[in-house]
Design a protein around this nucleic acid. Structure first.
Length: 427
RNA sequence: GCGGCAUUGGUGAAGUGGUUAACACGCUAGAUUGUGGCUCUAGUAUACAUGGGUUCGAUUCCCAUAUGUCGCCCCA
């Protein structure tokens, strides 16, 4: 009995035609990250468990794969924290790094949810300080990438946690700030009445719940918030508003059209390490896909490794999920496969002559491959056609004897037998 | 971790309590001896997830397990 081959659930595996599209997407992201001055980083998939789990707890911890006393990375941020502390003396700050790699989570797979998936992260890590202008540059980078990916109109939604925290302080419920943010983050998904219920269930007075919901769902442009600031008179709140103001203004200065960014007070991000600006990006036509690029500002990247203060701001693109859903919605244009420019078809046993022709093609900087198997010419040409190879080169005994090759252009249907040193203009 | 649904060749997908389980894609060959996607012909595959049960007989009905898939939780 043979072993039945299979691929594990939650692990994406593609056919070549789709892998090409996926790689293209990664290429665009990578090129943009580099364009904006981010340095490459690669870290191991396995880390010592005490390092990786230093700060993790609750839900996340259940989803981590363990191998003896090592664990698989579940994101790229924690490894970055370790790396920065470890190499602190050898890095130039602010440290701008990008990292694109697979991460692992032991969840039940379902639509848009994988156990192994790519994240494409950038972070800017400051030494002790990090200007708010970095927060403003991030949306511009997101904008450039999604413009180039060409997958439809999108909107970057931003918010600021200081603002929310300030508001909760004002309502005197800041001891529950983290839970409240978690709940209001679900507003778009489960609606106001369920959010109300949940907020009441964690002990918020109904009066205040009404306030919260009215506040986060108002049409919050920056001028409205500035007026609000005066009524509230809370330090955190006004810092949050000022930061939002700066992010909007400066990203606009950089070239981000206002229609691509908006304040959304319900965005708070589930992860509790964010402390200031937070971002989520949605496709206008497909809000159900969820956020395709998220991130934010954190005051201290690595407090669990060091006393140094390393504030940062960054984002992550969940490339696997994004790709999977775009593919399903047919939103990714077909890429022309271009593995080879010309396929060499030997019809002689004289492989010395074949290799001579092969080298001549390579000398002319054309991509080529030789079809070694004994098959009908028809089937070999079908091979070329299926791989979008535009030309074939027949080399038979006639060609060997006359020091020629026969090149056929499959698009035009033209065929020429020429001397080996004249091949250039037919390739 | 909890729940719904599913599982038939390399792939997609019909169908049945009773001899050889459709069809399509793919692949190979021929028509066309060294040349094209179409067409026609022929060929090609360890296929009813595994283990029990009911039955004269189970791929079909029942149970369990495994795997997949879709939700919930949580997240990218």
């Amino acid at each position: 009995m043979k072993v039945k081959p299979r691929t594990l659930s939650g692990y994406m595996e593609l056919l070549p035609k789709d892998q090409i599209k996926f790689n293209n997407m990664l290429d665009i992201i990578k090129r943009n990250y580099e364009y904006f001055g981010f340095l490459p980083l690669d870290t191991p998939i396995l880390e010592a468990s005490e390092v990786l789990l230093a700060k993790v707890g609750g839900e996340t911890e259940k989803q981590i794969y363990r191998i003896d006393d090592k664990v698989m990375r579940f994101d790229l941020t924690v490894p970055l924290a370790k790396y920065v502390v470890l190499n602190y003396g050898n890095l130039s700050f602010p440290f701008r790094r990008y990292q694109i790699g697979k991460v692992y989570r032991g969840e039940r797979a379902q639509k848009g949810r994988f156990r192994e998936f790519y994240q494409a992260d950038i972070d800017i890590i400051g030494d002790n300080e990090l200007s708010i202008y970095n927060d403003a540059e991030i949306p511009y980078i997101i904008y450039k990438i999604f413009k180039e990916l060409n997958i439809g109109e999108f909107k970057i939604k931003i918010n600021n946690r200081k603002l929310l925290n300030g508001y909760f302080e004002y309502l005197e419920i800041n001891d529950k700030a983290s839970s409240i943010m978690n709940i209001i983050d679900k507003l778009r998904k489960i609606g106001a009445s369920e959010v109300t219920e949940e907020l009441i269930s964690i002990g918020i007075k109904e009066e205040k719940v009404k306030n919260i919901i009215a506040f986060v769902t108002m049409n919050a442009d920056i001028e409205v918030l500035k007026k609000f600031k005066l009524n509230i008179d809370n330090k955190n709140f006004s810092e949050g508003v000022n930061e939002l103001d700066q992010v909007l203004k400066y990203s606009n200065n950089l070239g981000l059209d206002k229609k691509y960014i908006e304040i959304d007070l319900t965005i708070s991000r589930g992860l509790d390490y964010y402390t200031g600006t937070v971002y989520e990006t949605y496709l206008n036509d497909y809000p159900n896909i969820g956020s395709i690029c998220s991130g934010g500002r954190y005051d201290n990247l690595a407090s669990y490794y060091t006393d140094k203060v390393l504030p940062g701001v960054g984002i992550s693109i969940g490339v696997t999920r994004l790709f999977d859903q775009l593919l399903e919605l047919n939103l990714i244009k077909d890429e022309e496969i271009n593995v080879s420019d010309i396929l060499i078809i030997p019809m002689t046993e004289n492989y010395e002559y074949i290799s001579k022709c092969y080298k001549e093609v390579q000398k002319n900087k054309k991509k080529t491959q030789i079809f070694y198997e004994k098959r009908s010419i028809k089937s070999i040409i079908n091979y070329a056609l299926s791989l979008n190879i535009k030309k074939v080169m027949f080399i038979g005994d006639d060609e060997v004897n006359n020091n020629t090759v026969t090149i056929k252009d499959l698009d035009k249907g033209e065929q020429n037998t020429i001397k080996i040193n004249e091949m250039k203009r037919y390739l």
